[in-house]
Simulated scan of single mutants.
Amino acid sequence: MNGLNLFLWAILPYIVLTIFIGGLIYRYQKDQFGWTTKSSELLEKRRLRVGSLLFHWGIIFVFGGHIAGILVPIEFYEALGIPEHIYHRIAIILGMPAGIIAFIGIFLLFYRRIRVKRIKLTTSTGDWVALFFVILAIGTGLTATTLNINSNGFDYRTTIAPWFRGLFTFHVQPELMVYIPIWFKIHILSTFALYIIWPFTRLVHAFSFPLRYLRRNYVIYKRRIREA
């Protein structure tokens, strides 16, 4: 294994993770007022509603598929009696539509920003960067999935999955990534790029949960009593 592979699959992931976590902490401490979606709903609503719904629902199912395929060990499926070819077929049937829906959604949001003049004028450089890297990550993921439909002999659950889990247990195995198909490598590196820019764009709103609304006091309006 050469030095490039060692850097890409053993060192770079920790650099990305450091920038991601450190950037989120810094952004929250220094720019809480900028921790927002910067919604442009007032400027255009119809395309935003369609694109946003498609993208967010699609990406939720894509994320769920990644959890099932990467974080859940292959031994769990073997214990349930699910062979590799059945799992592969289920992953394609469920994963491809979710990825396509997410891609259509983000493409509509991108098209909306370049076609609606008022929105284009209010779009920051960070917004363009975020859109580009989200489209890149989803597009390369779809490409990898499509090219792997008829792939024989490659199962990412025995290569990418243990490599990824090993990063969090500090049991790094970069050798598992050396011979995986190039399209999966491109997708992973694209995702790394997305995580690097994430804390510095509007994507931070993904970590905003209005939990305080569950325990705050109700807003009570009282009628003002006119003085005699």
Rank of each mutant, 00 (worst) to 15 (best):
F7D: 07
L12A: 15
P13Y: 03
I19E: 04
I21D: 01
Q29C: 13
Q29P: 02
K30S: 14
G34D: 10
W35S: 03
S39Y: 12
E41D: 13
L42P: 00
L42T: 06
L43S: 11
E44M: 12
E44D: 15
K45Y: 14
R46P: 00
L48E: 08
R49W: 15
R49I: 15
V50K: 14
S52G: 12
S52W: 10
S52C: 05
L54D: 09
F55A: 13
G58K: 11
G58M: 13
F63K: 03
H66W: 15
I67R: 00
A68N: 05
G69Y: 00
V72H: 05
F76A: 08
F76H: 04
F76Y: 11
G81A: 05
G81C: 06
I82W: 08
P83A: 02
E84T: 09
H85Q: 11
I86R: 01
H88K: 14
A91V: 09
I92F: 09
I93N: 01
L94N: 02
M96L: 13
A98S: 12
A98W: 02
I101R: 07
I101C: 05
A102N: 01
F103K: 07
I104W: 12
F107I: 12
L109G: 04
L109M: 13
F110E: 01
Y111F: 13
R112G: 09
R113S: 08
R113V: 05
I114E: 04
